[in-house]
Structures are given as structure tokens and as C-alpha cells.
Write a protein that binds this DNA or RNA. Structure first.
Length: 283
DNA sequence: CACAGCTCCTGAATGC
DNA sequence: TGCATTCAGGAGCTGT
């Protein structure tokens, strides 16, 4: 499940390959893969990509002229692979993007089809940069140097809901998904259902610091992979799943206190937490 | 407007 | 064995 570190690994892998390249062909094999693109993907033909940008879990490559960008989201199972053209098509190949490269092409592979590619207009990001319109409602992420962390702390504490819901709300702070939310909450010793309003500024600031720390450690290990669904642009998995303290650890001892990690249903998904370290505070 | 819940999808794992 | 159910979850959309 690609979250910020995994998407950043993909961005960093793609950037040196696509920067300055002109698209010569786009083939779409599945309608859902471009479902949000008001502009047909074939409009990318003839355009030169400048670099790969990222905000939270969104990726985009501005086209020369900076009016439009090629936007990419991996969803749950999306992969962006740089592969030899002669390599057989992967099973869930959705889109190929070809450049003036006789050897390789960019392939978008996505088993569960939650991911998508689109062409979108760029708009001012308020700090001298540009962001696709479809990404403009997404807040800056925790690794963004322009992020105002004090402001994020205040916005989080103003939310009338549980803290984990807020962490997963990409319009408040982006890039965090179910895995890193559980890891950050475990590290900060906060229960997922704690109302955001009862947390102190210091607690929320600490929570964000833990989220940053865990995502940076994951990034250093190439991201978290449980299976073949998340891989870098060369098809390789990351190793951070070995370092998880809470997520997916139900029944195993908490690395801090030894209590068994619990699993709870939450928002149609799972939450993993230590019942001893993460007591639920009351409103 | 804010927040909660539904929905899209495939394939592995589990249940009877 | 085989068919049905459950689970994984990002984020847009709908309903209250």
C-alpha cells in the first residue's frame, strides 16, 4: 500500500528517467486507469516532461510550458515501472508511455485499479510553484519544507473526530495512510480513537515528529512491501515491513512493553495498537 | 460546511 | 473439491 515513503521512492526513481523526455506514444488498456482525466491521455504525445513532483501520495510531471502536467496516483496497488520494451506485458498492465527510447518504456501496472493517470491543468501553489488542480485540495505533506507545522497542529486539534481519522485526512496533512498512521500513533502512545480536540499541542507536535521519523526510516529502506504489490520503478521491494512495531503485528508482543498488539476494526479497515501503551483518553 | 459511511476493484485467504 | 464470503484500503462521492 503505497504511502508517502513508497511514493517518494517511485518519484525518485522516475525523475532521472523522465526528466527532459518527450512522450511519443501513450497506450491505455483499461478505461478505469484514466477515469479522472478530462483531457485524453493521447494529448500527452509531443509533450516534454520536466521533472517528477510529489505531494503526499500524488505524483506529477509538469509539461514544458508549465500549463499542464501528467498526474499519477498509485491507489492501492499501482506500480510505475521502467521496463524493456521487449519484456512481456505484465498481467495488470494498464497504460504504457513511450519516449524516444528504443530500449525502454514506462508502464503503469495496477491490479486493483484504484490508481489512475491523468492530464490536468497546473495552478499556482501559493509559494511560487505549481500544482495540478486535482491535487490542490491536498495539503502539503510532512516532508515538504514549505509545510507550516504549527498551523497543521492547530488544524488537527480543531477537528471534531478521532485522531486517526484526522491523520488519514489528506486535506489536513497528506501522505499518511493506514500503516504509518498506526506506527506514528504507537510511537506517540496515542489511541486511534482519541478525540483530536483533547490532545495538547505538544502531543500533536510529537505525533507529527514520530510520523516524520517513521516515514524517513521507511524511505531509507526503500519503503514498506508486504508482497509484490508495492515495488520501485525497477520492480524491487522495500524492506521496512521488517521494522514495523504495530501495523500487522496482532498477537505479537509490543516492542516497548511486551503486551500483545491488538487489532480493531476501524473505518472499514484495521487498526493495530498496544492496549497498554495506547490508552484511550476521554473527551 | 463538517463529518461519517459507501463505493470502486482484484486476488489471496478462509469458511462451510 | 468448489463455491461463497471476507479482507486489503486511497480517496472521491453522497448523505445527514
Amino acid at each position: 500500500m503505497p504511502e508517502l515513503p513508497e511514493v517518494e521512492v517511485v518519484r525518485a526513481g522516475l525523475d532521472p528517467y523522465i526528466a527532459g523526455r518527450t512522450i511519443v506514444a501513450v497506450q491505455n488498456f483499461h478505461p478505469r486507469a484514466a477515469r479522472r482525466s478530462a483531457i485524453g491521455l493521447h494529448d500527452a504525445v509531443g509533450r516534454r516532461m520536466l521533472w517528477m513532483s510529489r505531494r503526499g501520495k500524488y505524483l506529477w510531471a509538469p509539461f514544458a510550458g508549465r500549463q499542464h502536467a501528467f498526474v499519477m496516483h498509485l491507489g492501492m496497488s499501482g506500480q510505475l515501472l521502467i521496463q524493456q520494451r521487449t519484456q512481456p506485458n505484465p498481467k495488470h498492465l494498464r497504460i504504457t508511455v513511450e519516449f524516444d527510447d528504443v530500449d525502454r518504456q514506462l508502464r503503469f501496472v495496477d491490479q486493483r485499479t484504484f490508481g489512475h493517470l491523468m492530464i490536468d491543468e497546473l495552478t499556482d501553489d501559493g509559494h511560487g510553484g505549481a500544482v495540478p488542480i486535482c491535487v490542490s485540495h491536498i495539503s502539503r505533506d510532512l516532508l515538504d519544507p514549505v509545510l507550516d507545522r504549527t498551523q497543521v497542529v492547530a488544524r488537527i486539534r480543531a477537528k471534531a473526530t478521532g485522531i486517526k481519522r484526522v491523520l488519514l485526512d489528506q486535506s489536513v496533512v497528506s501522505g499518511i495512510g493506514n500503516i504509518y498512521a498506526d506506527e506514528a500513533l504507537w510511537a506517540a502512545r496515542i489511541h486511534a480513537e482519541t478525540p483530536a480536540t483533547v490532545l495538547t499541542s505538544r502531543q500533536v507536535a510529537k505525533l507529527l515528529e514520530e510520523a516524520i521519523a517513521v516515514m524517513q526510516r521507511a524511505l531509507a529502506q526503500g519503503g514498506t512491501s508486504f508482497d509484490e504489490l508495492y515495488v520501485n520503478v525497477n520492480g524491487q521491494s522495500g524492506y521496512f515491513s521488517r521494522s514495523l512495531n504495530a501495523y500487522g503485528q496482532a498477537g505479537k508482543p509490543c516492542p516497548r512493553c511486551g503486551s500483545n498488539i491488538q487489532r480493531a476494526k476501524f473505518m472499514n479497515r484495521s487498526s493495530f495498537y498496544c492496549p497498554r501503551c495506547q490508552k484511550q483518553a476521554r473527551a
